Amino acid sequence: MAVPGRQAPTDLAATELFAVDAYRRSFESEVAEVDPEQNRVRLARTAFYPGGGGQPHDLGLLSWDGGKAEVVRVKREGARIWHWLETAELPQAGVELLGELDWERRHLLMRTHTALHVLCGVIWKEFEIPVTGGNMEPGRGRLDFPLPSLSQDLGERIERRMNEEIQAAREVMVEFVGRAEADLDPALIRTAANLIPAEIDPLRVIDIVGVDRQADGGTHVADTSMVGAVAVVGMESKGKENKRIRIEVRDA
């Protein structure tokens, strides 16, 4: 399983556990900083995904000696990742605690995110066009493309091609690629506008072998068969050359 990242920066691998091991369900850490005004804490390391790229943040639980609290929000602010807690008694800085993800929700988001990358790969192979927008929730997601038109035949073909790639059990690799190398590959950053700041170096890259390879910070399953199956559940025109494709993840 290609869970660990290859060539991951040492500091990233030690602090942002979700970036190198999407299957990490629990972890131990120290409270690095407390913000009582916003009822949140920063941890020395975390497996909670802070949201981004259309993928929602994780939920879960933090437990420490004498207390526990639900994690209701996670967000990156600059270099810091904050965890908002549903409790009146925050743990103090320096306290050791246990973090546990809402794994059922996270795993469904992983399946959904990988399915969206398969959709992106299928569209790229057929049309070589970028993504203009996207979003997801557990089990459902959508991507927007500058397609000239939509049709029932297109939706059926996309659904069939996606399920073929999913059933092929394509390995999902996590890599870290130097920015200079990444900038030479126009297919690596598939958004219509490059929204990834130039100072982010190296880029984290998700490679669904033979299907899709692009810069991405989210969490994914280890191979496409773990997605299960997908259905195209809607297609909408959002403008002259902006078409939305909605998918749903289902059990195989």
Rank of each mutant, 00 (worst) to 15 (best):
N39K: 14
I123F: 11
V227C: 04
I206H: 01
E165H: 00
D21M: 10
D251W: 09
L85F: 02
G210P: 09
G78M: 07
F18A: 09
R106T: 07
E175I: 05
K68T: 13
E28F: 12
I81Y: 05
V34H: 07
E86K: 15
G60C: 11
L109V: 02
L62T: 02
G141P: 08
T219R: 01
A215Y: 04
T114S: 12
A93G: 11
R140N: 07
G54D: 01
E104R: 06
Q38P: 12
V72F: 01
G99T: 13
D11V: 12
D185H: 09
P138W: 01
W124R: 08
P148C: 12
M173V: 06
A180T: 05
L188T: 11
E89D: 14
Q7D: 13
G210V: 04
R142Y: 05
K75Q: 15
A93Y: 00
V95M: 11
F127P: 15
Q7V: 01
E171C: 03
I81L: 10
A115V: 00
K240H: 15
K238M: 04
E165Q: 02
G139M: 11
G67Y: 02
G239S: 08
G134I: 03
I81C: 03
V227Q: 09
R157S: 09
G217T: 02
A22R: 04
E104I: 09
E171S: 12
R6Y: 07
P138L: 05
E236Q: 14
D102P: 12
G239H: 11
D35L: 04
H113Y: 02
E77V: 13
G228P: 05
T132C: 12
K243Q: 07
M1W: 08
Q38A: 14
C120W: 13
R40N: 06
R213H: 03
D183K: 09
H57F: 09
L98G: 08
R42M: 08
R213P: 00
E159R: 06
R6D: 08
A169K: 08
F127D: 14
M235K: 07
V122Y: 07
G52I: 00
T219I: 00
R42V: 10
G67F: 10
G141L: 03
L119M: 12
V221T: 09
V249S: 07
N194F: 11
T87Y: 04
V177K: 10
S26N: 10
N39Q: 15
L101K: 08
G218D: 10
Q152L: 14
G121M: 11
E248L: 00
R213N: 03
L188Q: 08
L195K: 14
T112C: 06
P197A: 02
M173W: 07
E156W: 07
Q7H: 05
K68R: 15
R213E: 00
E86C: 11
L101Y: 07
Q38L: 15
V74T: 15
V177T: 02
H113K: 00
E70Q: 15
D153W: 08
D21E: 14
D183Q: 05
R246F: 00
S149A: 10
S225A: 15
